[in-house]
Design a protein around this nucleic acid. Structure first.
Lengths: 197, 197
DNA sequence: ACCTGAACACCGTTCAAGT
DNA sequence: ACCTGAACACCGTTCAAGT
């Protein structure tokens, strides 16, 4: 019965790739060879298509990079949420959360960098995604600092955590010494600093 | 007496630019239009030369960018040292120092970013330059934390400061509220946190 | 409706040829 | 000894032509 339906639905060329495939390819190349290696040609080759075909699914390279960053943020959110499952006292949970962030940065350095340093001026990550990611930390900090100073305390802790991880990632701690000890020292002092009052 | 001397010294083409000029041009374009705008063509045009001529003074674009970063680090060091002149108690000097870093980031965002985020994997800034820049902060922190915990304390403060400035620069503080207040709160808690023991 | 080759503008870089 | 035009490889992107 090759009638109207099978005729109008017949696709002259079947889809040879998909947006998720393209984003996954970008992710893979980013982690393997860095942001500079994420070219339209490299991504196209990885999904088995020619570069112009990518423009059917993404507006341009910036758009693709943004989608990669979004997928990474979502993944990080899952890992942060998982880290908090092992609940204990607030101080311990704070260490677990920031430790999970640090672990993610070490295991996915290029992806972490992409998320935490704005690659292109105009490109923004969706606000609700970022809020979802920072929610667990915000909650623990509120427990430690009390509701009055929750916002400032969260900012202080977040600034320290992202600063520490960035410096570790960039090899900016040049004076030797135990980095794990510096991390524990920092967490400890921060937790006390925002709690005391 | 157009003799041997004037003959051997005669330069077939006089220098039309210089390394300092090239670095300054790169700096200017970086601050005005961002890192992506610092192309060999743009820099060459600004110093009045054709792109291939730049390769007489710099190895390649990465080399040029590195020189721009170095000149920026040197300039930042001067401003940090100047901020510390207005000496008061250690707590106040700590605020002045980090405040100067923050001011520099706000007035030279692209340059600040270049210095604090490694643009290319292999490129390193000279160690003594970075040490000179962190020396004032290290000294103040040592006063506050005592010699035993000076290193860990300095790392904690530096991580917080660079993290805070980076987040402010990237618009990562999305929940409103007074940023200056958050800054003061952070400095205050940090100073107490590393002092207490 | 997606895919492709051809083409374009732009970029970093090299090199032989000028002076 | 520095400067230049010409050339090359590579990149992002567009578009008409295929199916």
């Amino acid at each position: 019965m090759a009638t109207r339906n099978s005729y109008t639905l017949a696709m002259p060329t079947p889809d040879r790739t998909s947006l998720p495939d393209i984003v996954a390819a970008g992710r893979h190349i980013l982690e393997a060879d860095g942001l500079g290696a994420v070219t339209m040609a490299a991504v196209a080759a990885r999904v088995g298509v020619r570069p112009p075909s990518l423009y059917k699914r993404v507006r341009d390279r910036d758009d693709l990079i943004r989608l990669v960053a979004e997928s990474a943020v979502a993944e990080m959110g899952v890992e942060l949420a998982a880290a908090e499952q092992d609940s204990g006292d607030p101080r311990a949970r704070l260490g677990d959360l920031i430790g999970a962030l640090r672990t993610y940065a070490r295991t996915h350095p290029a992806v972490y960098r992409l998320v935490f340093t704005p690659v292109t001026e105009g490109v923004e990550l969706p606000r609700d995604l970022l809020e979802a990611n920072s929610a667990p930390l915000f909650a623990v900090v509120a427990e430690l600092a009390g509701p009055d100073h929750a916002l400032e305390a969260a900012r202080t802790v977040t600034a320290w955590a992202t600063g520490f991880v960035a410096m570790e990632l960039n090899g900016a701690f040049r004076l030797g010494g135990e980095l794990d000890a510096a991390f524990e020292y920092g967490i400890d002092r921060l937790a006390r600093a925002i709690a005391d009052d």
